[in-house]
Amino acid sequence: MSEQAVTVEAFHHHDEEGTRLGFWLFLFTELLLFGAFFIVYGVYRSAHLNDFKIAAESLNTGIGTTNTIILLASSLTMVLSLNAMKAGRVKLAKSMLLITMGLGTTFLIIKGFEWNAKFAHHLFLQTSAAIAEGKGSPLLTPGPEMLPDGQVLFYGLYFIMTGTHALHIIIGAVWMGIVYFWISKGSINPDNAGVLERCGLYWHLVDVIWIFLFPLYYLVA
């Protein structure tokens, strides 16, 4: 380019409603992503109905219910945080956000104990290489002790789907940490709370997905 390069003021376009609309579309793609998992679950459940029932009975409904209550409570605190922010009560908003993060972390810890209990019963996924070395779960890999097909699929889907959901919880919690930092710095404030609102929307999505995971794995045994 022969002409002298120039620096110009960046183009500032701020359209809160457009951003919100775009974020809703993004949330919809997340739903579709889990939708594929739910289709796979539905197809295999109808193909192996009895095995799915037997395997589902091994999941601890008490723990599942506790986790559901925790996530629902965290959705409530998230809304309270946003409301407090909109009302100008920044301190309250920050503490509500912290509680939400804490509840999310509690969910993960409980989930961890739940998974650990399954591992103790030799129910776990292992890499192909480790399976080749004979370190795979005797119940879920081909061998004399292998469970019936439907149960193998059930546990596989259980680990993958709750694992993907847990990954979303982690992302949500990290995002809340960043939002907390921005609130402290003042770049998120009562007049500019869009990011907090979108973080909340994301958290509700994670919550809604769990609302579907919970009955499918714990209740319809």
């Binding site: 996924l125 192909s128 399976i131 596989g156 889907l157």
Partner: peptide, 9 residues
């Protein structure tokens, strides 16, 4: 996932 840790999807 199937290639990494076989579930049987």
């Amino acid at each position: 996932l199937e290639r990494m840790m076989p579930v049987g999807f």
